[in-house]
Structures are given as C-alpha cells and as structure tokens.
Nucleic acid binder design. Structure first.
Lengths: 342, 342
DNA sequence: CAGCAAGCTGACAGCGTTGTCAATATTAGC
DNA sequence: GCTAATATTGACAACGCTGTCAGCTTGCTG
C-alpha cells in the first residue's frame, strides 16, 4: 500500500508512458515543446509511480543543486529563528529544495571565508539571510561577488533586483511610543538595539517620530545604547533609573532587553507596572510568561520567512520577478507590563 | 588567494598526483590497499587543490547519500533544540555529512508516513531523534523496519545495537528534591511531565526516591500531572496551592511549567521564594531571566547531541561500535527561586 | 629461483539525470 | 498538394564518482 523503500526512476516512467526519458524530463521540469496529450500521459505515469527525480543525478547532470543555505547568528533569540526555520522549511520542501543551516558566531572576522566555503561545499544556489545577517555589508558584498542570489529579512533599503523582506518596525515603534504617551507617561526612556542591526535604527526612528508628533522634547539622557541582550538591557535600564528624574516608562528595542529592564527594576524594589512601565519588541516565547506579561510588538516572522524563501525560489527557478512586497504589518501586543500613569 | 568559486575534481587530483582516479578515490575514502608513498602523494595533491569530493556524484555512484535527518517536535522548547542543532551540525559538517531538519507537529496520526516520505525523498542514511521523538514507539518501529540507523536522545532503555544518549535525569531530580528537603520543606509538590516523554518518568522517580530515602511519606495529592507547557504548569500549581495544606515548595518537571507555577503563585499574591519555593528542569534561556531566577537542572545538551551524531556517523561509516556511553551528568543550578523555609 | 599469494593499481561500466543536436511530425503558406 | 518553417521527440554524451574485476607488483615459500 505504501510506497516502498525504493523510488521509481525516470526510465520506469518513460516506459510506462511510452515515451523517451528525455520527454519525461521535459514534463517534469515544465519545459515547453511537449504536446498536451503527451504531457498528460507522462504526468499520469508520474503520479501512478509516485516518481520523484533523483536529486543527486539532477545536480550532477544539470547545474542545479536545489540547495538553499540559511545563515544565522548562533546566539540569536531562538523563537525568532524557530519561526524563520519553519517558514523557510515549509516552502522549500514542497518546492523540491533542501535547506541547509549554517550557524555563525558574531562577530566573526573570517565570516566571508566561512560563508564562501559553505556556499561552495554545499553548492548553494541561494541563501536566506535572517537579521542580522542581511545587515552585514561584507556578507552582502561577498554574495554579490559570488553571484549567489539571496533573500534578506531585515529593514534594509532593498537594492534593485535583490530580495528583501521587512516589516514596518518604525510604525510599530511609533505606535508603541504613542501608547505610552497616551497612558500619561511624560518621560519615556528608550533602549536602543545593537547598532549593526538595521532594525535598531528603525525602532529608534519610530520613537523619535512619536515624540516629535506629540510635541515632546527629545532628551538625550533618556536614550541609552543596548545590544539586544538581557544584560545590556539591564545595564541601560540601571542608568535610566539612576537619573535624577528617571522615566516612568521604558521602551526597549527587544524583549530580551525589556526583560533585563524588568529584572533591574525588580532588584531595586520597583513594581511593574506600578512604578515603571516597560515595553519590548519581538514577542518572544517568554514575553507572555514573565511576570508581568510584556507589552511588545509581534512580527509575522513565519510569513516573512515563507515569503523570503518563496521569492528566492522563484528567482532561482527563473520565474517572473514579483513586484516588491509591501512591508509586513507588525502588531502591538498590549499586556500588563505597561499601565496608565497614576 | 582564496579558492575560487569552482571546485577541483578527482581528475585534477589524479593528474597532479600521477595516479588513476580510482586510487584517489581509495585515498579519499580511507580504503586499504594503497601504498603509503602513493597515499601521501595523493593527500598532498588533495591539499594543494583543496579537493572536496562532489557529494552528488558520490551519492549517485555509491549508495551513500551522507545525509542525516533530524526530526524534532515543532512546539518544543527551543533552547533545547538550538543546542541539539548546534551539536549535531558541528559534528556533521566536518565529517562530510549534511543535516536535514524536519519539524513535526505532535500528536501526528500520520507521523510514520511523514517520516517515511522524508527518509525516502532525502535518501537519509541515518536519523537523529531528540526527545521526545525517541520516545515514540511507532517511530522506532518504522526506523527499524526501514533499517535506518538512528541515534535517540532520551532516557530510554537502549536496545542492543541501537544508539541512545541519555543523562542522569533521575539522579538530578533526586538531588533537587534533597536540596528542597535540606531547606526544610516538609511538603514538596511535584508537577509531572508529559507522559509520553521518557524523561517524565525518570524525573518523577528521582523525586520519589528522595522522599523515600528521607523517610517522607508519599502524598498523592502533592503530585499533579503536567504536559511540559507553561499553562499546564500553571494549572497544576493552582491545584497544589488550592490544597488545604499547600506545599511550601514545588518541583516542576521542566522550566516552562516552573514558570507557569511562578506565574500562578504571583497571581495569588504569593512571593517567590518567600511564600513558595519553585524549581524546574532544563535551564532554558529564560530560566535566569525571570524574576526570581530559577533553580533548575542543566543538561549538557550540546555534548549529548554531538555524541549522538558522532556515534551515528561512526555507525554509518562502519567504524567499530563504541562501548555504550555512560549517562551524561546533569548539573543542579541553584538560583533564587528556592530558599530555606523560615 | 620458480611459483603463488597477497598487495597494489587502473580500466571501465554504471548511477539517474539534463544538455545538445539531429530526426521526425505537424502546421502554415501559397 | 507541395515546400518551408516550426513544433515535438528521441539518441546519446556528459556530469564526477564508486564498484568490479583484471592486471601488474611485490614478497614469501620451499
């Protein structure tokens, strides 16, 4: 009943359909110049035999390896990567592509060499670059030089003919800031993200934009540099709370730093959100599990990864280039870590 | 300076070394019957040309695909999987194997069909089964039937000739329970893990063992069923706290459930660890980031995954079977969510 | 030093596809 | 209805490697 442990070959299909293997190849690869009747006959046999082309033979014969690489930062928040993996895998498999992972530890002075080796050894046809990989100029330069198509997921100005997936970080940051303003907060601290990440600038821009629109003066001491990790959030929050006039709300550029801020506030005996409102960005796995649950911004990562992989595969398959996608919509998730100023 | 975008073939190496391609093949595959001098000459050429065999040609010609699958539960705590991925990838790549990921959503009534298709399509030579995949009897049965070697990471009774990696869950659970007992807790609640996971039974056994050794009566109401997720931990903790004589400490079978327990306790106005000590299992990413930081147990997941992949590859390469590994050692990590009873 | 086994090496045929190009079938044009 | 042009099909050679097997070298035995 089940297909056995073996696979039908192109010969089996050809024989059953009464055509040459070359014709089967044409049908399977959607090439033109096959009569409709013939095509149907072949497709029928393909179905009956559950034929699937042998990837190794294909790669050896043609130039195509049908392998896509996914390069990611190892230390990265893993909920994000989980979604990226799932999105990309979900698209690659049905399309007949394999997805190969390559963790990288940043900073990495030999990063281009690592990627080059990876690309050559695995014979990659294309590469998916989740943030922050798409933010590294040397990586982009390398891939352009090697002429390997890639799809970056990052708020980058998309170069012509390059695939870039982004969401409206800035608008979400704007909304989140306005939410805090609407709650009566007058002094809102901001913890910036890692300067090498494209998202950092966008999120900061949204904050400034909201301040401006609401006629708040921009106060430099209320803005601190963080690096997207828990500890940097904790330290930055500490500095904000040390101010003579500390903020009543802190907006961190991601949830790890927001968790750090909450941790630091707790250590100082402050209650959240009574004494301090805290909001983050990303809606990671633990955002809803810490106490209090974190107000944050959710991105449709899975969809973004699916789109990235899909557009990349379209490009590799030589399909018509899709119109550049509009940014994906982020969603502000309001939980209990933020509250109206009493 | 850098190797170019192209790869040397076996012909290039053979020519340079002045031997036939077959001899190069022998050297590269570590086959016997090559004179030492010849072997060195070939290795020299291999090095000079940075030769790496073409995987597609190898697969097409020989029977070996050098592809290993990694099947995992999608919803899984991702810090665990991150470590598994990194461990396995770190071993596979240098050994010349590719690692293909396959997320699965449990429960899955068609799981065997999914795995079968995956194995056939990707021509898997072997499979790594992180928990809880190695706990599913139908999966094990399928792989045995298909004669695909696998390495399970789970506290399972290792069948002869099968690779199984485990750590001393039970001993760690025992220590953790004794820790709580040592802190003066008289009533210690326990939240069991998902019944389909092998680890659940082990962790529970450690708890019971510690009670027994310390001459504590086993009280059934203090033990609640959980399913390794946050919500089930929350619910189970709720039931424990509803008891007429609630426990002063709760040991949850993983950190997600421990986080749920803390959450629930907070909602009821209890302070941790003042009113209630809570401990978990796994040392996930957020264990040290919630407040208070969680007392838990850390497993050497990366090493376990490395060992699993390494033994599997050894088996595929036909190397001598290693002696069965001793269980890996877990480490109890004491943080602030547990305290002496005052 | 012949005779034989074991050690070493290479020629050659696949492996299952795709690319090339020639052969054949169909259609269009007049 | 015939020819030219075009659409469809197939024969065959790669692709880069491993398996098989035969041939050539050694080294050992008596």
């Amino acid at each position: 009943m089940n297909p056995r442990n073996t696979k039908a070959t192109i010969f089996d299909v050809a024989e059953r359909a009464g055509v040459s293997i070359k014709t089967v190849s044409r049908v399977v690869n959607n090439e033109p110049n096959v009569r409709e009747r013939t095509r149907n006959r072949v497709l029928q046999s393909v179905r009956e035999l559950s034929y699937q082309p042998n990837a190794a033979a294909r790669e050896l014969s043609g130039k195509r390896s049908r392998v896509i690489g996914l390069i990611y930062e190892n230390a990265q928040e893993f909920g994000y990567l989980n979604d990226v993996f799932n999105g990309a895998l979900g698209i690659c498999e049905p399309a007949g592509y394999s997805l190969l992972l390559r963790p990288l530890t940043l900073p990495d002075s030999k990063i281009t060499e690592h990627i080059r080796q990876f690309a050559i050894n695995a014979r990659l046809e294309g590469i998916v670059l989740p943030a922050p990989m798409g933010d590294l100029p040397e990586v982009l330069a390398l891939l352009r030089e090697m002429r390997i198509p890639f799809a970056a997921i990052t708020p980058r100005e998309p170069a012509p003919d390059e695939i870039n997936i982004l969401c409206n970080d800035e608008a979400a940051s704007f909304s989140l800031t306005e939410l805090l303003i609407g709650q009566g907060h007058q002094a809102i601290g901001f913890i910036k993200g890692h300067p090498d990440h494209g998202a950092s600038a966008k999120r900061f821009a949204g904050y400034r934009h909201a301040l401006k629109k609401n006629r708040f003066a921009y106060a430099a001491p209320l803005v601190r540099q963080g690096y997207f990790d828990f500890d940097s959030g904790r330290i930055a929050a500490g500095k904000l709370l040390d101010l003579a006039e500390p903020p009543s709300a802190i907006l961190a550029s991601n949830d790890d730093m927001a968790a750090g801020a909450i941790f630091e506030a707790r250590e100082r005996g402050l209650t959240i959100p009574g004494d301090l409102s805290v909001a983050g960005f990303d809606d990671t796995r633990f955002s809803s599990r810490i106490w209090p649950p974190l107000t944050t911004v959710r991105q449709p990562i899975i969809k973004m990864a699916e789109t990235a992989a899909g557009l990349l595969i379209d490009k590799l398959n030589g399909s018509a280039t899709k119109a550049p996608e509009a940014p994906f919509e982020c969603e502000v998730v309001i939980r209990e870590s933020t509250a109206h100023l009493t």
